[in-house]
Design a protein around this nucleic acid. Structure first.
Lengths: 192, 192, 192, 192
DNA sequence: CATGAATGAGAGTTCATTCAT
DNA sequence: GATGAATGAACTCTCATTCAT
C-alpha cells in the first residue's frame, strides 16, 4: 500500500471513529461513514472488507495508553494522589460525555462479537497495571497507605470501566460523579 | 381483556424476554419473537403496538424488588454481612450469565431511547436504598463499622450495575468476580 | 331491523361521515371509524359489509336537496338573484372548508369505484334542474336577462362542482372565491 | 450521474407516470412501479428516495407549457378564437381521458401533502396568464369583444381545471363537453 | 484505485376482514 | 347482536455487500 493509500485509510478510520462515537456500533451504517468521508459507497471496501473490520481497526488504533503519561509524571515527581486523580479525570470526562468515547460502540461490538472480547480484558489489565504503578509509587512516597496495590488497582479499573458505561444512563451530574470518584480512592489517601 | 388474552400476552412477554436476554434489544426482531411464539406477524400487534412497547412491558414486569426479601431477612435476624452477600450474589449470578439478564438489552434500549433513562436511575436508587437499609441494620447490630451508609450503598450499587455490564466482556472467572465483590464490601466488615 | 339497530346504524353513519369529511375516502380506516364510534372492531360489520358499503350509505343519506328550500323561496317571492346567490353561498362555504364537505371523499371513492359514477351525474343534474327553476323564475320576474336557462344552469353547476374540488388546492381566498362566483352569474343580471 | 443512469431514471419516471395516470397517487405502490420497470424493489431507491420524491419528479417533468405554442400561433397570425379553441381542446382531450392525465394523481397527492399546494396555484396562474395573452391579442385583432381579459382568463382557467377533475366522474359525452366549452367562451366572440 | 449501479433479504408496521364464541 | 382475537397480504423503506466498468 502506497503512502497516499495509507493516508486515505487513516482518514477513513478517523472519520468512522467519529461516527462510532456518536452512534455506537450497531447504530452506524456504511452510508453514514462514506457520506462523512465524502467517498463512494464502495470506496470503503477497498480498504476494509466489512464494518466489523473497520471497527476493529478503529478500536486498535484508539487504544490509548496512559502508561507513558504516567511514567513521565512519576519521573517528574508529581504527587501520587494527583496522578491518580489525573487518571480518574480522564475517565470522568468520558463518563460525562465531554470526551469522545468509544465505550458504547465497543460494548455493542463485543456483545455482538464474543470472539473479540479478549481485547476488552487486555484494556482493563492495561489500566490496572498503570494504576498499580501509581499506587506503589504513592506508597513508597508516603502519599498512600500501605495496601494490596494490585487488588485496589483492579477494583478502581473495574469501577471506571463500569461507570463509563452506566453514567450516561444514570444521568449522574458532574458533582455526583466527582463525589463518587473521590469516595472510591479516599481509602488510599494517607492523611484522612 | 379476557383471561385467555391475558395469558397470551404474558406468554408473548415471556418469550420475548428470552429473546431480549439472548440477543439484546437492537438484535431482536419482531420476526424472531413471533416465530418463537408460533403466532402470525401481526398477531403481536394485537397486544403490543411496537417493539419498544413490548420491551418496556417486559422491563417493567421484570423489575425485581429485593426490598421485600431483605426486609424478611432482617426481620428474621439474619446477620447483616450475610444479607449483603445475598444481594451481591444475585448480581454475581447475573454477571456470570447464570441468571438470565436483561442488562444488555436495557443498555441498548436506553441508548436508543434517551427519554426512558429515568427508569435506569430509579433502578439504581432502588438498589441503593435497599443496601442502605442493610448497612444501617449492620451498624446497629454491630456487624458493620460505622460509616456513611448512603455513600457506601450508592457506591456498591454503582459497582454492581457497572459489573453486570462489563463482566460478560471482561470474561472474569467466577473466582475473580467473587474476590472483587468481597473486596468491595470488606471495608464495611467489623472484624477485619 | 329493530328500532335500536336502526338508531345504531344511523349513529355509525353519522360518525363515519365525520371521518370521511376529515380524511377523504382512501384516508379513512375502519379503525378510525370504530374508535370514533366507540364500538368494537367487528361491530361495524354487523351493519355494513365493507367500507365501500358504509360510504355508499353515507353518501346516499347526505344527498342534500336544495329543491325544497328554493321552492319555498320562490313561493315567498324572494328576488331570483338573491336565491341564486343563496345557492352559490352554500357551495362557497364548502369550497372554503367552512361547511363540512364530502366532496373529496366522493371524488376519491368514485375514482376507485367507476361503477358508481352515475350517482355523481345525478347530483349535478339535480343541482342543474334547481338552478333552471331559479333562472326561469328570474326571467319571468324580470330580474334576469332572457337566456338559455338550461345551458346556463348546467354551466353554473359544473363550475360549482369543479371549484368545490379545486379551491382547497388552489388556496383561493374568500374574496377571490366571492369575486369568481359573482363574475360567473353577472351575465344573467338584468341591470348591468 | 452517467448517461445510462440518466436514461434509467427517465425510464422509471416514464413508467411511474403511467402508473400514476392509471391509478392516481394513493393507488400506486412501489411494487407496481418496480415490477412494471422490471427492476428490484430497492432499485428504485437508487434514484428516488421515496414515492413522494418520485411523484414530484414526474410532476415537474410533466408541467407542460402552452406558453411557447401560443406565442408561435400569435406570431403566425392565427385568429384568436382558434388559438383559444386549441387551448380548450388540450384540456378537453384530458377530460375525456384521451390524453393521459395526471390530474387525479395530482389531486390525491396535494390532498395528502398540503405543503406542496403552491404548485397547483402556480399551474392555474400559468394557464391564466397564457389565456390573458390570447384574449388581449383577440381584442386587438377585433376577434374578441372588449372585456376584462384577466377576469375572463382566470374564469376559463378555473373551469378547465375543475372539469378536468369532474368530467371523468360526471361521464359527460364528447358532445356535452364540447358544448360546454363552446358555451364558456361564446361571450368573448365578436360576431354573435 | 475507485465508483455507480444494483440487489436480496429483511426491517417494522398497518389494514380490512373473518371467525369462534 | 356483538366482540376480541387472529391473520395474510401488503405497505414503505434500509442495509451491507457485490460487480462490471
Amino acid at each position: 500500500m502506497g503512502r497516499i493509500a495509507e493516508e486515505k485509510k487513516n482518514y477513513i478510520m478517523e472519520t468512522a471513529r467519529g461516527a462510532f462515537i456518536e452512534n455506537g456500533y450497531a447504530g452506524v451504517t456504511m452510508r453514514q461513514i462514506y457520506q462523512k468521508c465524502g467517498i463512494s459507497k464502495s470506496g470503503i471496501y477497498v480498504y476494509f472488507s466489512s464494518i466489523k473490520d473497520l471497527f476493529l481497526a478503529v478500536l486498535q488504533r484508539d487504544a490509548h495508553s496512559l502508561r507513558q503519561a504516567v511514567d513521565i509524571e512519576i519521573w517528574e515527581g508529581r504527587p501520587a494522589e494527583f496522578i491518580l486523580t489525573d487518571i480518574m479525570n480522564v475517565y470522568r470526562e468520558e463518563m460525562l460525555g465531554r470526551k469522545p468515547s468509544l465505550a458504547r460502540a465497543t460494548y455493542e461490538f463485543l456483545m455482538a462479537n464474543p470472539d473479540e472480547r479478549a481485547f476488552y480484558r487486555s484494556q482493563i489489565d492495561d489500566l490496572t497495571s498503570v494504576i498499580v504503578t501509581v499506587i506503589e509509587y504513592g506508597m513508597e512516597s508516603g502519599s498512600f497507605v500501605v495496601c494490596d496495590a494490585r487488588a485496589w488497582a483492579s477494583h478502581i479499573a473495574d469501577v471506571l470501566f463500569g461507570m463509563v458505561l452506566t453514567v450516561p444512563l444514570s444521568g449522574y451530574s458532574e458533582d455526583e460523579v466527582s463525589n463518587k470518584l473521590t469516595f472510591l480512592i479516599r481509602p488510599l489517601l494517607m492523611d484522612l
